[in-house]
Every structure is written in C-alpha cells, then in structure tokens.
Amino acid sequence: MASSRHISIIVLVLLFGGSKANPAAPSHSQLDVNHKKPLQTFRPYNIAHRGSNGELPEETAAAYLRAIEEGADFIETDILASKDGHLICFHDVTLDNITDVANRTEFAHRKRTYEVQGAKVTGWFVVDFTLKELKSLRVKQRFSFRDQRYNGKYQIITFEEFILIALYADRIVGIYPEIKNPVFINQHVKWSNGKKFEDKFVETLLRYGYKGAYMSEGWLRQPVFIQSFAPTSLISVSNMTNSPKVFLIDDTKTPTQDTNQSYYEITSNAYLAFIRNYVIGIGPWKDTIVPPKDNYLGQPTDLVARAHAHNLQVHPYTFRNENSCLHFNFHQDPYVEYEYWLNEIGVDGLFTDFTGSLHKYQEWTKPYPKKQKKAEALLHEIANMLKDDGY
C-alpha cells in the first residue's frame, strides 16, 4: 500500500499549489486495492457533485477529499480543456464566476465573446488560458449563501490530479467525470494527429486503469461512470471504452447541444430504447422527474419507471440542503427530501452538494449488513497486523 508519507505529499501538492501537468500514474501494487474497503453496491449511489461543494469551493482537491471523508461512493467532476490541451476539472467554460480572474490585471485583455450552445457569452474563457495560467488562479465559492472562508485558498486541478485523489483514498472510491461542452471544446482546442476532446478524455481514463463493463471485476476495482449531455460524445466514446456511461438530461426547454433534440424526444420510449445501446443510465434534472409548481412538488412523471423498464439506471441532480433549494413539501429538511426520492421515486443514485448528509441518512436507514461489516473489520485487523509486522 502507498505509504502515508506518499499520500500526504500528493495531498499537499494538490491543496497548496502544485503545478505538475502530468503526474505519474500509480501502479496497482502502490494502490493495493485488495486491502481496501470495497465500493458499496447494495443501495443507491452517493455521488459527490463537484465534491462536497456545499462546504468548500467546488471541484478543488479540498472539496473532493472532504467528500471522501464524508462517505461519498463517487466523486463527480466536469472536464474541460486548457488552451494547451490539458484536461482540467472545471464546470463553466468561463472563469468569471468562481475564480479571481477579474482581479488579475495581467489577464484583462483576455476577455472574449464566443458563441456557446447558441448564445453569445462574454467573459474569460478556459480555452484561452494555458494550464500554467489556470493554475495561477484561485477558486472561490459559487453561491453567496455558502461559507466564504475558503475563498482564494485553492487552485484548479487537472483531470489526472482528480483521479489520483480517488485512487489514493483509503477505500475504493469511484469517479464520475463529465465530458463538458464537447462541441465548444473541439471548436477551440486542437490536439495533434487530429485527436478530439473525447479521445484525450478516454486516453486519460485508460492510462490510469479505468476500464471494464459495469459490475465487472475491473470496474469494481476502479469504478467509473462517464457522463455527458452530448449523445454523440457518449456514442463516440463507446467505440473506445466499455466503461459505463450515463446520458445527462437538461430541463425541458434546453435542446441537446450537439444534436439539437428536444427534451421530449430524448426521453421518449423510442429514444430510450436507442440510447440504452450506449449507456447504462440517465441523469435528469430532478425537476423534470417531479415538476414543481409554486415551489411545491407536482405529480411525478413516469420517466423513472420507463427508464427502469429499459434497464436504465436513474441518477438525478442536484440535491442541496439549503432552504432556498428545498421544495416546501420537505419543510426545510433535506433528510425528508432524500427519503422521498430514494423510497417513493426509487432512483438509483443522487448527485448531492452535501455528501455527508446523504451518507448519514443512508447509514441510518439502510446501513451496511452486519456480516459485511464484520468481514471488513476482520480484513482491516489483518491488514493492521501485517503492517505492524513490517509487510
């Protein structure tokens, strides 16, 4: 197993300003997954949306480490590309909302206007900055109603650094990366040999050992879901890897960014039957599953039932604890919201900004089976004995 000193060095580098673009991929002997607590698969997945970003600035090493500490099954991230072709963890194509770029006078001339998904957008774009320049920026909390104490403390991380956080966790933690805005990225970032964003994305996953069909031995060792709002990207990566994929679905007014299909077309039975050849699940915005009115829940649609009939999992997004994000039916109680979605709607995983809350709810209502807990405790005891003996 990797030494605690090795892990500490990696964590310190990620948290406090490391700038290596391509850290070396760890070997299986370094990771020693056989002695790690396995991924739970007996209850819906706890998916840490951009890390534990309800507490810490999103998609930073700190947010991901906190999510793992709090019990996340998967850590989720958005993948974009820098001007010089490095894959980074960042949600927006512009840097304006969650970095200090507007205060950096050396970058004042970089402001641009581009077309993004049919709309003119002005700002400082990720694709106009090199990785070194992106690493010089500092990240802040997106929402003003969340804790602002950590603003300016953390930097943007690369896809590879994100992977290392999962691989060096003290238990098996899955990753859930999104191919973000692939049409825009492929327009503005060019790689050698005619490669595209999707090629570089899959190459990175394969280089770090992520492969194998859902629930295969390889997948259970290094779990991954590949997600995208762009169906053509998911179809494209299906020709490169058999890792499981999830088709993200936006609100009812937003067409797909690459095929310009409506929400109603992509959620039809005919389309679900088609897309299931490439994906194992869908990730809809939760308000399209249960449309609200005046902040009260309406009648649930049949989308979950129809997806399950096509043998597709359903992982809705995004669950947030704050009162302003909870429908009135839940009486400002996020645990009541979890109960509704897991027990009444019957989804297979949740994207949440508050990993710890979801983990506590699931441990209260559906804890690990006693036999599994005893087996894991025994394995942990044996591992400690071997460690004490110098192995």
Rank of each mutant, 00 (worst) to 15 (best):
L80Y: 03
K286D: 09
I282D: 04
H35R: 14
Y263N: 07
A383C: 02
A270L: 09
N295S: 15
Q222I: 03
I235F: 08
S228G: 06
L326R: 09
Y391I: 15
Y176A: 01
D353E: 14
Y296N: 11
L39D: 05
Y210S: 00
K111Q: 09
V224E: 08
D348Y: 06
E161T: 01
I156H: 02
D170F: 07
E198R: 00
L95G: 00
H188D: 02
F159Y: 12
Y391E: 14
R149I: 11
I172K: 12
S243R: 01
F351E: 00
K153T: 00
N311F: 10
D96Q: 03
H327P: 13
T365G: 10
F229C: 03
L326A: 11
E381D: 13
Q40P: 11
I7S: 02
D333N: 15
F184Y: 05
L220I: 03
E115W: 01
G298P: 08
I156M: 11
R5F: 15
K387S: 11
D170E: 14
A108Q: 15
G346E: 03
V139W: 03
T301I: 15
S136D: 13
T241I: 01
F107M: 05
E58L: 10
S228C: 11
N277H: 12
E198L: 00
Y214L: 15
R43W: 01
G283R: 05
H359D: 13
H109N: 14
D294K: 15
W124E: 13
L206I: 07
A2E: 09
F143P: 07
V314T: 04
A48C: 05
L378P: 07
V290L: 09
N260E: 12
S236N: 13
I165G: 10
D258E: 10
K196G: 09
A119G: 02
R306Q: 14
E376M: 14
W285S: 11
D84T: 04
E178H: 03
I75K: 02
V224K: 07
K180I: 01
L31K: 04
A270T: 10
Y335C: 12
A81N: 00
I185D: 02
P291T: 05
I47D: 10
F74I: 05
S262M: 08
W364G: 09
K20L: 14
V183Q: 05
H359Y: 12
N260T: 06
F90A: 10
G390N: 08
N343I: 00
Q187D: 15
F145P: 04
N329D: 15
I179Y: 06
F159L: 09
H188C: 02
E203A: 09
